[in-house]
Amino acid sequence: MGYTVGQVSAFAGVTVRTLHHYDKAGLLSPGERSRAGYRRYDDADLARLQQILFYRELGFALEEIAEILADPQANALEQLRIRQRQLSEEIGRLQRLAEVAERAIEVQQTGVSLTPEERFEVFGEISFDLSYAVDAQLKWRDSEGHREAMARAGAHTREDWRRLMAEAATWRAELLAVHADGEPADGRRAMDVAEQHRLHVTRWFTPCPPRMHRRIADDFASDPRAFALLVPPSQQRPGLAAYLARAVHANASRHTPVEEPLRRNTDEDPDRHGRIAR
């Protein structure tokens, strides 16, 4: 007797149009017809439909399904292995995108609530690169220091940001002067500038021991987006980021014997968001 296309559509969860398409494509042609010429599906057809829907759920194209069903012994296992790898890669990609979206939301939520005019007044040429902020969120999401810095940054008032940026501008002018004067990066003057930056991070964002400060400085030297949060492009000079990194490392060595005796398992992570201004 068989099943009508409407019956199969109902209990298989597919549309009649889809069943007609499978028929025209030669993927699932009913084994029977009624006297009036209507399609009739038998048990073998339903079993084949179940296989088709299984492969469709896994994302196979109809042409690929047709090849597998034409010779299931030769094609099914290898095709499934390939698809498994593809799905695993896609799952990983989607997980990364979900994390990025989550961190982007956090960045936006902890941002400074200012009008465009106020933002320009406070930050001037310093611009926020959301891609860098999101990357920092992903990399340091398990860092207590990063979480604290984000929370403190989000709690700063407009007046706080004005004071912070004014302090950062004064520091930046000193950095540029030291660099222009040709002071050695491991000299006292350059190390003092590096120490001022470390204290700035501690004062406005999160405690910044020398080991953390080294890692922050390395990021300045390796990622232009990070250094642009510190020194706007119009004020940057060739080699300035690397110069600052060397000064920070020298200053860290100067302070480490006092501040970090025998501390080998320090877990502090650099605060990326805290590099808005220094």
Rank of each mutant, 00 (worst) to 15 (best):
Y3Q: 05
T4H: 08
G6E: 15
G6S: 15
G6Q: 15
Q7S: 12
S9E: 08
G13I: 13
V14I: 15
V14Q: 01
V16W: 03
V16S: 06
V16P: 05
R17W: 07
H21R: 08
K24A: 13
A25L: 12
A25N: 05
G26N: 05
L28M: 11
G31D: 10
E32P: 02
R33K: 14
A36N: 15
G37T: 09
G37V: 03
G37I: 12
R39N: 04
Y41C: 10
D42S: 07
D43M: 08
A44P: 04
D45A: 11
A47K: 04
L53C: 07
L53T: 00
R56W: 09
L58D: 09
G59M: 07
A61Y: 03
I65C: 09
I65P: 08
A66D: 14
A66Y: 06
I68H: 04
L69H: 00
P72R: 13
A74N: 02
Q79S: 15
L80P: 13
R81P: 06
I82D: 14
I82K: 14
I82V: 11
L87R: 14
S88T: 09
R93F: 06
L94K: 14
E99F: 00
V100Y: 10
A101G: 14
A104M: 07
G111W: 07
S113H: 02
S113V: 03
S113N: 05
S113M: 05
E117C: 00
E117Q: 15
Y132N: 08
A133N: 04
V134H: 13
D135G: 06
A136R: 11
K139L: 14
R141A: 11
R141L: 08
S143E: 10
E144P: 00
E144K: 02
G145I: 01
M150H: 04
A153D: 03
H156M: 13
D160Q: 07
R162W: 00
R162A: 01
R163E: 10
R163H: 14
E167N: 06
W171T: 03
W171R: 10
R172F: 09
H179Y: 15
A180Q: 11
A180V: 01
E183L: 13
P184E: 09
G187R: 10
G187L: 04
G187V: 07
A190G: 07
M191D: 01
M191V: 11
D192E: 15
V193Y: 00
V193T: 08
R198A: 01
R198L: 03
L199C: 08
T202P: 01
T202N: 06
R203H: 14
P209N: 11
M212E: 01
M212Q: 10
H213I: 07
R214T: 02
R214L: 02
R215S: 07
A221S: 12
P224L: 06
P224M: 09
R225I: 09
L229V: 00
L230I: 12
L230H: 11
L230Q: 03
P233K: 07
S234A: 15
Q236R: 15
Q236P: 12
P238F: 09
L240H: 07
A241K: 06
A241W: 13
A241P: 02
A242I: 03
A242G: 10
Y243L: 02
L244F: 12
A245W: 05
R246W: 01
A252W: 03
R254D: 04
T256K: 02
P257A: 04
P257F: 00
P261C: 01
P261T: 02
R263C: 05
D267A: 13
E268K: 02
E268Q: 11
G274T: 06
G274S: 10
I276S: 11
A277H: 06
